[in-house]
Design a protein around this nucleic acid. Structure first.
Lengths: 151, 151
DNA sequence: TCAAAATAGTTTAGCATTACACCAAATTAG
DNA sequence: CTAATTTGGTGTAATGCTAAACTATTTTGA
C-alpha cells in the first residue's frame, strides 16, 4: 500500500515551529518529563516533587514560600505538594522559630535514604540522555545556554 | 539590616538540580511560555493553540488526530482546542471526503490573516531571545541539540 | 503606640494536559 | 459477506499549575 494521499507523521510540514526555540524546548522537556515518569513512577514522585526534595535536602529549614520562590513555583502549589511529601514521610514541617505564620521544612530520616535512591535513578537516566551529546563540553555548554534563556 | 539568618533566593543551593538537563529545560521552557503569554495573551492564543494553527496552516486538510500526533498531544485534547479555534473563526472543520468519522481542518480567511499577525509577534519575541546567544551558528546548534533530546 | 501595609500559609476556582472508556464508522480476517 | 478489530472524535475524571481571595501574623511608619 504505497498510498500517499494521507499524510503520515513524517510528511507533516512544521513550518515556523521548526525554528522556534520555545517549541523545541517544549518537545525536549516533554520527553524528559515522560522518561522521568517511567523511571520514577513506582516511587510516586513527579519531577516537581523531586525538585522540592532536592532543595530541602540541600537547604534544611527553608520555608514553603522560600522553596517555591527558588523553584519559580506558586506558593499555593506547595501546600498539596508538601502535604503529600509529609504523608510519604519524606519531609517534615516544623514550626518556624521566630515566625508563627510559617513552617520550616526538613528531611525525615527515611527521606534522606529515599533521596539517595531516587537521585541514583535520576542520574542514571540523565547520563543516558547526556550520552547523546558530543562530549562533556557540549553538556556544560548546553546547561549554560539553557540558563541564559531562563530569565 | 545585613542579616544573613534567612536564606535569600541567591543563597539557595540547588545541588543536583543544577546539573540536570530535565530541570534546566523546564526552567527555560517555563520562561518562554510566560513570555509568549505576555506577548500574545490579548489575542487569546496560548503556545499550544499557536502550534495547532501553525500545523494546519502549512498542512490544510489534516484530521484532528493527525495534528495531535504531529504535535505529540493526546487526541482528546484537540476537541476543546479546535472548538475554541472554530469559535474564534480561525480554523474550520469540514467533513472528511472518504471517512465519515473524521473532520479535515482548514484555515478560514480570517485565520490566515490572524496567523500572519501572530507569527510576526512570535518571531519578534524569538529574535529577542535568540539575541542572547553568541551567533546564528549557536542557535542552529541549539535547535539541533534540542531535537536530539526530544525522542 | 497603633493603624496600615506586607507576608506565610491556605482554600478555591479556572484552565490545560493525560488517561480511560465510549460510540460510530471503517478496516481486516476468515 | 460477515464478525472481529481498529480508528476518529468525544465525554469524563484526575492531575498540575495559576490567580485571586481569606486568615493569622508580622512589619512598617506616622
Amino acid at each position: 500500500m504505497a498510498d500517499d494521499t494521507k499524510k503520515t507523521d513524517q510528511s507533516v510540514d512544521f513550518g515556523i515551529l521548526n525554528s522556534l526555540l520555545g517549541y523545541r524546548l517544549r518537545r525536549a522537556q516533554m520527553n524528559f518529563f515522560s522518561k522521568f515518569s517511567e523511571v520514577c513512577s513506582d516511587l510516586g514522585i513527579s519531577p516537581g516533587l523531586f525538585a522540592i526534595i532536592a532543595i530541602v535536602e540541600r537547604n534544611p529549614g527553608l520555608t514553603q514560600t522560600a522553596v517555591a520562590q527558588a523553584l519559580g513555583n506558586d506558593r499555593s502549589a506547595m501546600v498539596a505538594a508538601v502535604d503529600k511529601l509529609e504523608q510519604m514521610d519524606i519531609i517534615e514541617r516544623r514550626p518556624a522559630i521566630n515566625d508563627r505564620r510559617s513552617y520550616a521544612l526538613f528531611m525525615t530520616k527515611k527521606g534522606e535514604k529515599f533521596f539517595l535512591t531516587i537521585s541514583e535513578r535520576v542520574m542514571e537516566h540523565e547520563q543516558i540522555m547526556a550520552a547523546r551529546l558530543e562530549d562533556e563540553n557540549e553538556l556544560d555548554w548546553l546547561l549554560k545556554t539553557l540558563d541564559t534563556l531562563s530569565k
